[in-house]
């Protein structure tokens, strides 16, 4: 009896949380796409500043991680493929895995660690210092002022970062291929391009935009719901990272399944 109760209430809490996220995202999307036509212009300066922090400053770490992941996947697929005498398929395997899955996912996880946590910490600290209240008393809506620039920055930067991560991942696989699987640089990259269909790259990019939406929503929502006291800010930040990772993987599952079942035969 107790188990079904807890499963039930956990499900309801989870759904309520997703509802809150949807509300926040709706408000931010409205501020970015609709309000400018009603006279409330979005301050692009803030969005650019966020884009620098979310995107440009993440390039070094995303490059490194994707490069290593590319190499790792090359190694792991070669491990099986060499039994079939099919080492030349390493390039295909790496290309498809990176562009469809690992590129977007690894990038999202790095961005969660860097930006998802910082959104929660920033907004959480503002909440504790009554800065959010101050915004409201000045007739400035926190969603327009704080969330919308982050939202715009994320949905623009994440596909860009993912594209770069895809390239670095393939390069990592290439390093392995050239050193241990009998490729030359040229042959590896050519094989990669032959193996890829546009759909592989675009599904990865669509996923990356969805990941960006989730990361922004969870980071900001955790920030806004911070309790009083600096210890609570730490709690919110942790919570933001954990929930973001979970939701990103859930969204990944949904979209991967969607793309699988709607794929042209």
């Amino acid at each position: 009896m107790a188990l079904t109760d807890s499963i039930g209430s956990a499900t309801i809490t989870g759904l309520a949380y997703v509802g809150e996220l949807a509300r926040l995202t709706g408000g931010a999307a409205r501020a970015v796409f609709i309000e400018p036509f009603h006279g409330h212009k979005l301050r692009l300066g803030r969005a650019v500043h966020q884009a620098m922090a979310v995107g440009v400053e993440a390039i070094p770490i995303v490059s490194l991680i994707s490069f290593f992941v590319g190499m790792i996947f090359g190694l792991q697929s070669a491990y099986q493929l060499r039994k079939l005498g099919a080492l030349q398929f390493v390039a295909d395997a790496v290309a498809i895995a990176i562009t469809r899955e690992l590129g977007p996912l690894m990038t999202a996880i790095m961005v969660i660690g860097r930006s998802g946590s910082s959104f929660a910490a920033e907004i959480g600290t503002m909440k504790v210092n009554e800065e959010i209240d101050a915004l409201e008393t000045m007739a400035l809506k926190p969603v327009h002022f704080l969330v919308a620039p982050k939202f715009l920055a994320m949905i623009l930067m994440l596909p860009c970062l993912t594209t770069w991560a895809d390239f670095m991942g393939v390069t990592g696989g290439a390093l392995f291929g050239v050193s241990s699987a009998g490729f030359t640089w040229a042959s590896y990259f050519n094989r990669t391009l032959d193996a890829l269909v546009l759909r592989d790259v675009t599904t990865g990019l669509i996923k990356s935009v969805m990941f960006g939406v989730v990361i922004t929503a969870v980071g900001c929502q955790e920030g806004f719901s911070t309790g009083l006291g600096s210890e609570q800010v730490g709690r919110s930040t942790t919570s933001a990272v954990v929930k973001s990772i979970f939701l990103v993987i859930l969204v990944d599952l949904v979209f991967t399944a969607l793309f699988y079942f709607t794929a042209p035969r």
Binding site: T125, M126, N129, E130, E131, D133
Partner: peptide, 8 residues
């Protein structure tokens, strides 16, 4: 506000 609530 009590603590000023200046934007840090």
């Amino acid at each position: 506000f009590q603590g000023g609530a200046l934007f840090g």
